[in-house]
């Protein structure tokens, strides 16, 4: 049994935590939801089904899904190399992984613009295209799968692999039947976080995508545009959509974690 607050103290502690969460998270979220229904459910529906809004949401969700799949593959591969391989400069590579996370996203956008912009030093110009959206999202979501898989791979009992080999399993079979199933939960968790991050990304996209409606305008930029033109209901409606999507992902992740902890582990 761990340390507990003194008698009566737990009420105070719990109250403080609840109040803090309310002020910082729950009340603002509630306000957005409330605002989106300001002019009734009809207006909400109208705002969210407006073609420009639909196009922005579609672009955001589809691109996010695509980059998540790429992340699942590349992130696992990077984690594998960082855990199982020994090469000079491994530590530097390892610390580079977090750079996209630490970098202010607007700086990330600027970096991409410098490399892939109009006067690209390598002659690749992707500005104002959907490729730019994907590229920027890949940049900012790089760490999620890598950092989720790395510790699991590190802790993975290599004797399991030796046992499988002694039973006749080929290297491919060992990867498929032993390693991958043990990494899957971490890969999924990393993907979910990357997805949640991608659907809300703003800073790295705003410079390089050109924000062309029906083409390269993502949901967060759409929200920003509506606020600028004083259409708060439209902005709030799309915001609520993103919010609900994020909550669903978190909830699903939680359920998955609970289902998993019933067996496995230990």
């Amino acid at each position: 049994m761990g340390l507990r607050a003194p008698f009566g103290g737990e009420v105070l502690v719990r109250g403080t935590v609840l109040m803090w969460l309310s002020i910082i998270v729950l009340i603002p979220l509630g306000a957005v939801v409330f605002r989106s229904f300001d002019e009734g459910a009809g207006a909400f529906w109208e705002a969210i089904s407006e073609p420009e809004a639909v196009a922005a949401i579609k672009l955001t969700v589809i691109t996010s899904l695509v980059i998540v799949v790429i992340n699942a593959l590349m992130g696992t591969l990077i984690a594998w190399v960082l855990v199982r391989d020994e090469f000079p400069g491994k530590r530097i590579v390892n610390s580079i992984i977090d750079l996209p996370f630490a970098l202010p996203t607007i700086v990330a956008g600027l970096t991409l613009l410098a490399l892939y912009g109009n006067d690209s030093p390598i002659g690749v110009n992707v500005t104002y295209t959907k490729v730019a959206v994907g590229l920027a999202l890949l940049f900012v979501t790089l760490p999620f799968v890598v950092r989720a898989v790395q510790p699991v791979l590190h802790e993975l009992d290599e004797e399991m692999e030796e046992a499988a080999a002694s039973l006749g399993a080929s290297n491919f079979r060992i990867f498929r039947s032993i390693i991958l199933p043990n990494l899957t939960p971490a890969i999924i968790a990393g993907c979910a976080l990357a997805f949640a991050r991608a659907i809300g990304e703003f800073g790295s996209l705003v410079l390089i995508t050109g924000n062309i409606p029906f083409d390269t305008q993502v949901a967060s930029v759409y929200i920003f545009g509506r606020i600028e033109s004083d259409n708060t209901t439209a902005a709030a409606a799309v915001a609520v959509f993103l919010l609900v999507l994020s909550v669903v992902i978190l909830f699903a992740l939680n359920l998955f974690g609970r289902w998993r902890s019933r067996h496995e582990r230990g």
Binding site: D157, E159, M160, E162, A163, A164, I178, N182, E264
Partner: peptide
């Protein structure tokens, strides 16, 4: 193995 090396999944 000493630590079983059970396929835990």
């Amino acid at each position: 193995f000493q630590h079983y090396a059970a396929f835990k999944h």
